[in-house]
């Protein structure tokens, strides 16, 4: 089942603007490798679920996947062939607002090549261009 909030303050939201870079959620915090967004976009709950399924299938239940974004923004849509007016449409889907630099997924407990394979499969399901990043640890010689 796709992700969505259990409780919300308002049933519907305005579209909003997506400007600037990610000032939060831009470091690998839980896993060893992360998938970082390079663009701005709305990532839907369905896309996130597709990524999770693809990565789980590829990893054969090895390692651990962390989803770092949550689709908490409701997107409404009017039915087809409807005249304008008569209020806002019904909630169609839930999206996460993704900004450049944001870490979307993290993987732990697998080697680098396996993580790379999982991330490439995830990136194919997303509306943003992505790159793989490593966890930045305290100074380590030869790292």
């Amino acid at each position: 089942m796709s992700l969505m909030p259990k409780r919300v303050l308002h049933r519907k939201q305005q579209r909003g603007r997506m400007k600037g870079l990610a000032s939060r959620g831009n470091t690998v915090s839980f896993g060893e490798y992360g998938l970082q967004s390079q663009d701005t976009a709305w990532v839907t709950a369905r896309q996130l679920e597709a990524c999770r399924v693809a990565a789980t299938h590829y990893l054969h239940r090895e390692g651990r996947i962390y989803i770092r974004v949550f689709p908490d923004k409701p997107i409404t849509k009017k039915p087809m062939e409807t005249r304008m007016g008569t209020g806002k449409g019904e909630v169609e889907e839930w999206v996460a607002v993704v900004k450049p630099g944001m870490i979307l997924f993290e993987v732990a407990g697998v080697d680098e090549n396996t993580a790379k394979g999982a991330f490439s499969r995830m990136a194919a399901k997303l509306p943003v261009s992505c790159r793989m990043v490593h966890r930045r640890l305290a100074a380590r010689k030869g790292a």
Partner: peptide, 10 residues
């Protein structure tokens, strides 16, 4: 080196 600040892309 006490602290290093990076850009949003790291």
């Amino acid at each position: 080196v006490k602290k290093v600040q990076y850009d949003p892309f790291g």
